[in-house]
Amino acid sequence: MTIKPAFDLARFQRWRRPFEIGFWVVMMTVNTVFNGVVAWFDDSYRTHRAESIEPWIWEATSSVVMLALVPFVVMASRRWTLRFDTWRQNLKVHLALSVAFCLAHVGLMIVLRMVAYRALLGWQYHFGDDWLRQLGYEYLKDIRTYFLFLAIIGGYRLLLLRLQGEASLLAEPDEGPPVEPVDRPERFLVRKLGKEFLIAAREIEWLQASGNYVNLHVRGRDYPLRATMAGIEERLDPARFVRVHRSYLVNLDYLAEMEPLETGDARLTMRDGATVPCSRRFRMQLRGRFGDAPVSA
């Protein structure tokens, strides 16, 4: 069964990285402009407590550091995902990380402001006389920003899952014998845009570990399965699926070529032209499957 996508997901995937980077740049730029206007109005125009350029230095340096910290928040959201079954434990981790986020933000922001003040105004920047109080004020803002970033990243990830589909193992029925072996499934259930369909295990071309998921690559699409690589490897046919890397399993039926590299690793080319890394540890095992003969289509 095939499902017609609501939009060209394959095309989006090609532009996904520039889109994600551009989103954060645009969001922080817009935030800088709005906050800068407010700060300029309050501190420069209305009260005359600051030079006209100072509010823009404050907001620009803060936003630049925030942008630099976004990749670390993304990595933290993948490593400690806030889910219904783990939110209590992972929330404590994120609360601790929000402190580190604030310290990094404030520290780098001060450095940039010192440079900007010296270059643009010829002055020396002072963070404040009461550092502890000022740091507490900054943390109240930064903890909100940190969890806002987590919410945006989590929402975006859920949207992608709905668009590209999410795989799951067929569950054992409440009554009667299972229609297939539960310990070695022949099919996977895929939910996509409110619909469900089955994909055969033999049609999976390769699998890639990605955080708390394993992506099943089928006919040019990736279907995330909430599982570990070790756990799913045990449930796949070892005569067909082979581990080639810490993060990759390949279906030998779709393997076209193995190219040795100078590092001792190898590059695998699949029948659709995609490439998969093969580490030195698994390269010899893979060659052993073919009697040391070169793998080619």
Rank of each mutant, 00 (worst) to 15 (best):
P238V: 05
V106L: 08
E59A: 02
P71I: 05
K195L: 14
L252V: 13
G22P: 01
W58K: 08
F12K: 06
A151R: 03
W87Y: 13
R17A: 13
A227N: 13
E172F: 00
V30H: 02
R235G: 00
A266L: 07
L103K: 09
K141D: 10
T263N: 11
P277G: 07
V250E: 07
Q13T: 10
W80Q: 06
S63M: 09
R113C: 06
R271L: 15
E186I: 02
V25Y: 01
R11A: 13
D129N: 14
H245F: 07
T32L: 04
R133A: 15
L120K: 08
A100D: 08
P185H: 00
D253G: 14
I57S: 07
C278V: 15
R118Q: 14
P185V: 00
M28C: 13
F72H: 14
P173Y: 01
E166W: 04
V115K: 09
R267S: 15
L159N: 06
Y139I: 04
V250I: 13
V250N: 08
T145E: 11
L9H: 09
D142K: 08
D174I: 13
A76K: 12
V33G: 00
M229F: 01
S98D: 05
I110S: 03
I110T: 04
L161Q: 15
K4W: 08
E203F: 07
R226L: 06
P224Y: 01
S52Q: 10
L148E: 13
P260Y: 03
M258F: 15
G211M: 00
D85V: 13
K195R: 15
R17C: 09
E172L: 04
W131L: 12
R83A: 11
N215L: 05
E234A: 10
R281E: 14
R281F: 15
R46D: 10
E166P: 03
H126L: 14
L121F: 03
M28A: 15
V25W: 02
A274Y: 13
D142G: 10
L261S: 15
E172I: 03
R243H: 03
M258H: 12
R287A: 09
C278F: 15
R243E: 04
R289M: 04
L189N: 05
A76Y: 09
D130F: 12
T47K: 14
R191L: 08
K192V: 10
S247L: 00
H48T: 10
W15C: 08
L225M: 00
L69H: 09
E203A: 10
E234H: 07
E259L: 13
L207A: 00
K141S: 15
V73G: 07
G165P: 01
Y248F: 11
L158W: 11
L160P: 02
L158R: 12
V73E: 09
L121H: 04
Q208F: 02
A201E: 00
R271C: 10
I57V: 09
A230K: 11
Y223P: 00
D183Y: 03
G288M: 03
M284R: 11
V250W: 07
F19Q: 02
L169C: 14
G22N: 00
A96R: 12
A293S: 11
